[in-house]
Nucleic acid binder design. Structure first.
Lengths: 338, 338
DNA sequence: GAAATTTACTGAACCGGATAAGTTGGAGAG
DNA sequence: CTCTCCAACTTATCCGGTTCAGTAAATTTC
C-alpha cells in the first residue's frame, strides 16, 4: 500500500503542492472553497503528513522525549513513572505529539541521549525528571537550546520551565498530624539522597520536628526499592527507642515497611503508624490500607506536558506549582499505644 | 548552536557529501584512509545524522512504536508493562532505535494510531500486545505491511512474528503442585476474558482440573485491577464450599486477594493458599510473601524487540517461545488445614 | 603498452513537505 | 477606462540525508 502524499492530493484536487500545504495547515493563500475540497480529499484518502518531511523542512518533529533513569526492577514496580507517562500522553495525544522513551542507567547517559536526540532532530523538547543539585543536564540543555520542562524541583534551572509540588508543605502537614495523634518519635525512610526533592523533604522534616520539639528526626536514606525500604525499617525498629511512626518517600517502601513490621510482630497501627508518600492503588490493597500523601500524578504529568508544549511554541517559561500532596488517612495511622 | 551536517563534514574533509555518507554507513566507495578521516571528523564535531533526513530518503526511521491499551490506574501499578518496556529498551538502545509510546483507550484507537504512524512514516514497526481472538489489528498491519511482533499468543497472526510463553504448561504445573499439597478445591481469578492468553490459561486450567478429577474449576473473570481482584476473591470465599487455593492472573490481584483473606479472618496459607502469576518485587514485599509464577519479563520484551528488528530487516518471521513461567514457592502456599 | 577493469570518488536527483518569491485574474479606486 | 492592489494561486527552492550515474586515475590483463 502506497502512502498518500500531498502530491497525490494536489493531483486529485487539480491544484499545486503548495496550495495543498497551505490548505492543510490553515495558512492563508487558498480560498475557503478550495481548502474544504482539499481537506475532504485528504480525509478521504487517509492522508497523514510524513513526519520526516515535515521535520526536515523546518517544522517541528512533533515529538518529545523522556528518559527514565532507574534500574528495571524499580521502574517495573514504582507506579510514579507510569502515572506520569499517562498524564503526559493525555496532553500530548490531544496535540498529536509523540512521546519517545529511553531507559538509561546514569545521568551521564541521559546527557548523551539528549545530545543525540538533538543532533538527530528527533524531538522538539524533553521532560527532565529527578532534578539534582548542580544538575549537569541543565547547562547542556541551555547550550543545545533544547526546550525542556523540569520535574522534581523547585531548583535553579535558569531559563527552563519547571513543574513542582510543595513537598515541604505536605511533609509538615503530615508531621503535625502524627504529633496531633500523640506521636513523639517519628522517623522517615527517604528516597535517593541526591535528588533535590528528597533534600527538600528532608530539610522540611528536620525543620518541623525541631519546631515541634521532637529531637529525634531520623531520616534513613534509601533508593525507593522495597528491599532497601524494608531493610531501613528493620534498622529503625531494632533500636531501643524505636519510632512509633514512619513516613516513607514512596509507596513501595511503605508496603515493604508494613511487611517488616508484621514480620517483627508489631501491630500496625497499634505499635507503629505508617504513612506512604504518593498514593497508588497499592496503598489500598494491603492490609491495613496505608495512610498516604495523595497527589494526582497524571495531572502533574499533564501540567508538565503543557509547560513543555508552551516552551516549544516559544512562550515564556513557567514555574508552575502543581497541586500539593494531601494526607489521605487510612488504617495505618492511629495514636500510639501508651 | 548549529547542528553539524554531512555537508560540514564534507567541507572539512575536502570530499563530497556522497563520500561522507558512504564512509559513515560502511558502504563501499571510499578508501579506508578517507573513511577513517571522515569518521574522525564526525566524532570530533559530534555529528548525529538527522533522523528526519534519513527517514525521508528512504532509509528507516530508526524507531518502533508501542501502544498501551489500559486505563491509567492499571498501567501505573501493573508491573508487567514497565518490565516489558525495560526489556525492549535494552535491545533497541543497543541498535540505537528509539521507542515511541502511545497510551490509548480502545483497540480501535490502537488501529488509528498504527495507521497514523504508518502514514507519518514515524516508525519502522510496532509491538502488539494483548492479542485477542479475531484481532482486528492483525489485518490492518498486513494491509499496511507494517513490520510487527505480537505478544500474548500464540494465535493466528499470519505473516507476523510472535513471541509467547507456554502459559498452559505453567498453569498445569501449578495445579499439579497445589493438588500434590493436598488441595482439591482450586479456583482462579482470571485476567481480561477477551485476551487470547487469558483464554489459553482458562482452557488449560479446566483441562488439568478435569484430568485430575477436580470438578469445581471455577474461573472468576476480572480486569487486572486490585479492586476487581479483591471483589472476585470475596465472592469466591463467601461460598459454602470455598476454595482452599486461588490462582491469580496477575500479582496486583493476588495482593488484593491476600488483603481480602486477611480482612475476612482467613489465615494465609493455613486457610487459603495463594499463587500469583507474574512475579514482581510486589510479591516478596507483602506478608506472607506470595508464591508466584516467575518469568523474566524484561527478557520476554528483549525477545520481542529482537524479533521485531529482524522483521524490519526483512528476515523471515519467527514464532519464538520465550521461557515458560516457573513456580517460585514462597510463604503463601501450604497444605490445606484438615 | 594499449585495452579492460576496478577503485575512489563527484555531481545530481530524490524523498515529501514548508515556504518565499513570482504570476495571474478580477474587483475597486480614481 | 486604466491603474493599483489583493486574493488565489503556481513555481521553485530548501531541509539533510541516500543513492545512482558518471568520471578520472590507478591497476590489472593479455
Amino acid at each position: 500500500m502506497k502512502r498518500p502524499t500531498i502530491a497525490d492530493i494536489a493531483r486529485r484536487a487539480g491544484v499545486s503542492k503548495g496550495a495543498v500545504s497551505y490548505a492543510l495547515n490553515g495558512q492563508p493563500g487558498v480560498s475557503e472553497a478550495t481548502r474544504q475540497r482539499i481537506v475532504a480529499i485528504a480525509q478521504e484518502i487517509g492522508f497523514n503528513p510524513n513526519s520526516a518531511a515535515r521535520a526536515l523542512s523546518g517544522a517541528s518533529a512533533r515529538a518529545v522525549g523522556l528518559t527514565l533513569c532507574r534500574p528495571a526492577r524499580i521502574l517495573s514496580i514504582e507506579p510514579f513513572f507510569m502515572g506520569l507517562i499517562s498524564g503526559f500522553e493525555a496532553e500530548l495525544a490531544a496535540r498529536s505529539y509523540a512521546l519517545t522513551l529511553q531507559v538509561v542507567a546514569t545521568p551521564e547517559q541521559e546527557i548523551e541521549v539528549y545530545r543525540r536526540w538533538w543532533g538527530e532532530r528527533r524531538i522538539d523538547g524533553v521532560i527532565v525528571t529527578d532534578l539534582r543539585e548542580d544538575d549537569q543536564r541543565i547547562p547542556v540543555l541551555h547550550q543545545l537550546q533544547l526546550p525542556a520542562v523540569v520535574i522534581g524541583g523547585p531548583g535553579d534551572t535558569g531559563r527552563i520551565a519547571q513543574v513542582w509540588s510543595d513537598d515541604a508543605g505536605a511533609i509538615t502537614e503530615t508531621v503535625r498530624y502524627l504529633v496531633a495523634l500523640g506521636h513523639r518519635r517519628i522517623a522517615r525512610v527517604g528516597g535517593l539522597p541526591d535528588l533535590l526533592h528528597t533534600q527538600t523533604r528532608t530539610r522540611a522534616f528536620n525543620d518541623i520536628c525541631t519546631a515541634l520539639g521532637l529531637n529525634e528526626a531520623v531520616t534513613m536514606p534509601s533508593d525507593y526499592t522495597g528491599e532497601e525500604g524494608g531493610r531501613a525499617t528493620r534498622r529503625l525498629l531494632i533500636g531501643a527507642d524505636r519510632p512509633t511512626a514512619v513516613i516513607y518517600d514512596n509507596d513501595v517502601m511503605a508496603v515493604a515497611g508494613l511487611a517488616v513490621a508484621q514480620e517483627m510482630g508489631l501491630a500496625v497501627p497499634g505499635d507503629l503508624s505508617i504513612v506512604a508518600w504518593d498514593d497508588s492503588p497499592l496503598c489500598s490493597l494491603v492490609h491495613p490500607p496505608l495512610t498516604a500523601l495523595s497527589r494526582d500524578i497524571a495531572e502533574y504529568g499533564a501540567h508538565a506536558a503543557r509547560e513543555l508544549l508552551a516552551a516549544i511554541d516559544g512562550k515564556p517559561v513557567g514555574n508552575v506549582e502543581a497541586g500539593t500532596a494531601h494526607l489521605t488517612p487510612r488504617g495505618s495511622t492511629a495514636p500510639p499505644r501508651a
